[in-house]
Nucleic acid binder design. Structure first.
Lengths: 236, 236
DNA sequence: CCCCTTGATACCGACCGTCGGTCTGTTTAT
DNA sequence: ATAAACAGACCGACGGTCGGTATCAAGGGG
């Protein structure tokens, strides 16, 4: 008996393909709600085929999470490897990584993905991802803060603690952003947009004050970010 | 056939008992890792008995989470109901709710529970709990900030956004606290203790600066918190 | 150069134990 | 008598296993 159309893939390709499918499914349906059956059908692989490459569903999740975190962290590493810029510029580039990442990967539905990731059922996924990124990012941001302290522009007691707090704070926007996205096209849209602007301003203001900088120093950006966010094709 | 010793409990008592068992199991083994079998055996109830009171395992989780959140939120409500105190005192009481709660419920193993809750496998539980508390606490803290603004002591643009950020920041200590607890009795204990002190100081300093207060205004406390934490019976 | 052998491995899918949840019937309380 | 509280056999679906098969690259004899 022959099912003629089967070709063995190179392990790394198959792994990558399975990670792609899993990532897509996990972040749309949620991890618990995604069945191995779903992954197998989507990737067109049998059960045995899958378990030849991954030892469990959980390992598949970790694979997805690690790959995502590595992507973010490697970008941060590039930013901090710039030896010529001053600490403030490095901080600028660092804090704008996320915005730049979103912008350069701009495609329809990106906002929806952000929204989906912030759904209640994906809380565990998202939090694990954030935790990984945070742990990896602390030494990188610490290096920037240390440089700034040596330059005499940042005034902090302990750079590592300050780095940790700043990274923690940068997750703060998520709530306002989620609400703003959900409010698009409704009567609450304008209010949510205002709230988002407040949140952005307050976040940067707080970073200024943590680092002992004059108010407004780090608010380099996201110009028109609110407008752009709210203008994206309204929900459905 | 008769098993003579069975008495029907009042629904609210049975519900409370099941919630107690579930809470204990969920926060020790984790939600996913806790089997309905576990809960049933622990509570000495049959499957039919359980499903007479709860429609699903998930509803049991929500019951536990809601009960915990309600406990915290009702304490916050008490604090803010005090009409005689000034805003700064209210803020003092508000930010110390957690510490007071821990202190007055002091019992052996409490630190272990905190640690267990912050384990990776309980991330989803903890984050859902935090989200509930945050949503409920925003209007309460907003009211305090509003009062402080009317008194002319707090200087913030938008009280709701500021309240949200302060609540977000107050979760920051968890990481340092977890690390400190894990480091007890090891060679890293002293360093972790210092880091915890840095984190506490920086958190309060940041709240000062968000509210436009002089440095050190809100650092009313947790005197000897670090020492107390690190002195608890070392990890096994 | 081709073909066959051979070993390694990518892959298959029937099967298994366990899980959350249902359903029918029984006991208890009023 | 009636309704609520409870019991436990049962079910489908899930994640994971296992014995077997298909594919492919590397050698060796003609």
């Amino acid at each position: 008996m022959k099912t003629p159309a089967r070709k063995n893939m190179r392990p790394e390709d198959r792994r990558a393909q399975l990670l792609d499918c899993a990532q897509m499914l996990f972040f749309s349906k949620g991890f618990e709600e995604t069945t191995m059956q779903d992954v197998l059908e989507f990737a067109n692989v049998s059960k045995g085929g899958f378990y030849h490459h991954f030892k469990s569903k959980e390992e598949l999740l970790f694979g997805v999470l690690d790959r995502l975190a590595d992507g973010v962290l490697s970008q941060m590493a590039v930013v901090v490897s710039d030896e010529t810029s001053c600490a403030l510029d490095l901080l600028h580039n660092f804090t704008h990584l996320r915005a730049n990442y979103l912008r350069e990967h701009d495609y329809p539905g990106q906002v929806e993905i952000f929204r989906t990731m912030n759904l209640n059922r994906n809380l565990a996924l998202l939090e694990q991802f954030k935790r990984r990124v945070r742990v990896g990012a602390i030494p990188i941001l610490s290096k920037i803060l240390q440089k700034g302290r040596e330059e005499g522009v940042f005034n902090v007691e302990d750079v590592e603690t300050a780095a940790e707090l700043i990274l923690h704070i940068s997750n703060f926007l998520d709530f306002a952003l989620t609400r703003a996205i959900d409010a698009r096209g409704t009567k609450d849209a304008e209010l949510a947009g205002d709230k988002l602007q407040y949140a952005i301003d307050l976040q940067f203001l707080t970073i200024d004050r943590i680092l002992g900088l004059p108010d407004g120093t780090t608010n380099f950006g996201w110009p028109d970010a609110v407008k752009a966010t709210m203008e994206t094709t309204s929900a459905n």
